[in-house]
């Protein structure tokens, strides 16, 4: 694995204490050219994570705070009439950055949400008839507050599918929290962080991730997982082929992070919680189980062929 990638992980771990797994998920998501949805309470370090990644990876960073009055133009940008030239000049919105933090995405109206989601999907935006490419790499971290759903527009399942992974931050453990509380202000450290990588290098890594080898034996395993979710009555519906592709590309990125040139079943199992928890819904008595346990059950139910 690239030494720089290692440094990125190390640096992030120094700031976001006790969350190595989440950091790796976020990186894997980035390497797989997917987007990340973080669902958790405010104040658990979602924003910090995005900040840290942007700084250490040397990406342009933009934060969009989603509110109920946010309009698509606020995200994409707007053309303004220039009196001196008599022409319209396009003023790019915050979406024209390499890393976007879409904070509290569920507080905006579906109209604003879909503007972002379409940009995520197509890596380009069409404004007033002109198509404009978004910068590369392009990575969106959206956050969503699950606790207070009053006056919010929760993302429907079809939209959730646009995110490669959904993770939760969770509270830090006692040791990490102690370090957090006793240490220097995080924001100051973040400001001082030096980039460990150039965006070109990141693009190269993304390319490498796509080239990680997947053997027929591993495809068997992935298919077995997909088949299981489709055959079992405990899920409202099985995983889509797109989910299968997402699982593979995430597993490839995970293998790259582990410094391997081929995907092994452990990679699939590792990324499975992030990739499928927002795509699978349990029915009946199983709804009470947390999505984490649901994925655990899934892993244990499918034998590695």
């Amino acid at each position: 694995m690239s030494q720089n990638l290692n440094n990125v992980i190390k640096q992030a771990e120094q700031i976001i204490l006790g969350k190595p797994q989440q950091i790796r998920f976020a990186l894997a998501c980035l390497l797989a050219r997917g987007h990340l949805l973080i669902e958790d309470l405010p104040g658990v370090g979602k924003t910090t994570l995005a900040h840290v990644l942007a700084r250490t990876l040397g990406l342009q960073f933009q934060r969009i705070q989603f509110t109920s009055d946010l309009l698509p133009a606020d995200i994409l940008g707007v053309s303004v009439y220039q009196r001196d030239t008599g022409e319209f000049k396009f003023h790019p919105g915050p979406i024209f950055a390499q890393m976007i933090l879409a904070d509290e995405i569920n507080r905006a109206t579906p109209k604003a949400q879909s503007a972002l989601l379409e940009a995520m999907e197509e890596q380009q935006v069409t404004i007033e008839g002109t198509t404009r490419a978004l910068p590369a790499p392009f990575f969106v971290i959206a956050t969503q507050n699950p606790a207070y759903q009053i006056g919010t527009f929760a993302l429907p399942e079809s939209q959730l599918d646009r995110f490669l992974m959904r993770i939760q931050m969770g509270y830090p453990d006692a040791h990490a929290e102690r370090g957090l509380l006793s240490g220097v202000d995080r924001r100051e450290i973040v400001a001082q962080l030096s980039p460990q990588m150039e965006s070109n290098e990141l693009l190269a890594l993304q390319k490498r991730a796509r080239e990680i080898f997947v053997s027929p034996a591993l495809l068997d395993y992935v298919q077995a997982i997909l088949r299981h979710t489709r055959e079992q009555a405990r899920y409202t519906h099985g995983l889509s082929p797109r989910a299968g592709l997402a699982l593979l590309s995430a597993a490839r990125a995970w293998a790259l992070l582990d410094g391997r040139d081929a995907v092994i079943p452990e990679d699939v199992q590792a990324v499975l919680p992030g990739v499928v928890s927002h795509r699978l819904q349990a029915v009946g008595e199983h709804t009470k189980r947390s999505s984490e346990l649901l994925v655990r059950d899934l892993i244990e139910a499918v034998a590695i062929p």
């Binding site: 452990e266 892993i299 244990e300 034998a303």
Partner: peptide, 9 residues
């Protein structure tokens, strides 16, 4: 070995 257990695990 559990059926779902990968070689490395």
């Amino acid at each position: 070995r559990a059926a779902h257990e990968g070689a490395q695990d």
